[in-house]
Design a protein around this nucleic acid. Structure first.
Lengths: 219, 219
DNA sequence: TCATTTTTGTAGCGACCGCTAGAGAAATGC
DNA sequence: GCATTTCTCTAGCGGTCGCTACAAAAATGA
């Protein structure tokens, strides 16, 4: 057995043994740099964030960026994945944990009001805005797919409630899901345009009032 | 009196006499070129539409563009003005012509469903999307101001109905206006993401169901 | 010590960006 | 005809874009 030499001070990333690699070690923490890139892309979008911007905020040289993350496009892809797990997971959590579609939508909209106006990071949703007006169609399409997949997930959840009798049989699941998606995207735009958490929460409550109250909560 | 020589075939623009200017006449129709620029900016946004793109779709050289429209920024400003009168005026028309705030909002959302999916031009609203992720902050801010002014106009109209007793006294006019703005922007995003007119109309009807039905139409 | 491996900083590639100088072309007034 | 005015075309400016070749630097294994 090799001794687990891992407390050398710089290698925060390698938590799991793995003997130190051969060459010169990285001078920066990969996760920290990735988070900086995430914030830059979140604030300015894919296209308006130049590689020069990225190297500045990540505090590394261009060759280091390309060695660690590939090109700009794959760095952005990784940023989107990290964003999804770190900041954008409240929707799927609500869908998984709440007992009814209505509860899931309610929790999603309320948490969106908070998440989209949180201090410490840009307002609104990266998935909604970061690939708008993008001259690389694949990038624009990849986020569009994520948005539409979210709406499809709402639709599935609503249909399940209809099938279970929780929602009326004549419920238009597709329209209800799209309405929810439009609200989320509209609230994200509002957050970018300066709306506060309280203002977005009021919007969310109005939007929620359209739901038939046949669910578990009737108070 | 000078005879009104105005039928020289090329000068569509000068409808009002004004003796022909001194130098070499323009080889293109300014309004037609402006409309082409409008469509380009609408589809790709301010930043992603290069001057080279513009000269190609307008079918003129770069010096002609700069002579006729100033720089890229002022061309975009003019495009936004033209867009407002030609494509984006349905909101203020509804606010001016409908008897109640609710009717104005209903007409706005229904007409948005049509306008945002009309064939022959890009989907969605130029004001919502064309300055997203823009590295020129003034451009981004100018469209943001237009969006927020729209919401303020809704709020004023709603407050007028509250004052007139058409809407309940405890109506949250600001939240209701912001909800309307979020719906418009969300529907615009949906249109960009591929939603059809019928789908957006269904979303609009759902959104409208939140309004208290104390207005003139109760059928 | 010394060869090997990997990262780092410098410096710059070709392509495109918004924009314009300058010469020629097409109209006018005289 | 001829000067004047205005527009058009070619060509290219300085700057930034995404990206990379290259050599020095810093770790390893022997």
């Amino acid at each position: 057995m090799h001794p687990m030499v891992n407390d050398d001070g710089t290698a925060k990333t390698r938590a799991k043994a793995a003997p130190r690699p051969r060459g010169r070690p990285r001078s920066f923490d990969r996760e920290t740099a990735l988070e900086k890139a995430l914030l830059a892309f979140w604030e300015h979008g894919y296209e308006a964030t130049s590689v020069s911007d990225l190297t500045r905020v990540m505090d590394i040289g261009a060759p280091s960026l390309y060695a660690a993350f590939g090109d700009k496009r794959s760095l952005f892809d990784e940023v989107v994945r990290v964003y999804g797990t770190r900041y954008g997971s409240f929707t799927e959590r609500a869908l998984a944990e709440e007992p009814t579609a209505r509860d899931a939508v309610a929790r999603t909209l309320r948490e969106a009001a908070t998440a989209y106006t949180e201090p410490g990071h840009p307002h609104g949703c990266l998935v909604v805005h970061a690939a708008a007006n993008c001259s690389t169609p694949e990038v624009e399409q990849s986020l569009r797919d994520r948005r539409n997949a979210n709406i499809a997930a709402f639709e599935q959840r609503i249909k399940a409630d209809v099938a279970a009798g929780v929602l009326p049989a004549d419920t238009d699941a597709a329209a209800l899901a799209r309405h929810t998606g439009a609200m989320i995207q509209g609230m994200s735009q509002q957050a970018r345009d300066g709306a506060s958490r309280e203002e977005l929460e009021a919007v969310a409550e109005i939007a929620l009032s359209i739901w038939p109250r046949t669910g578990t909560h009737t108070g």
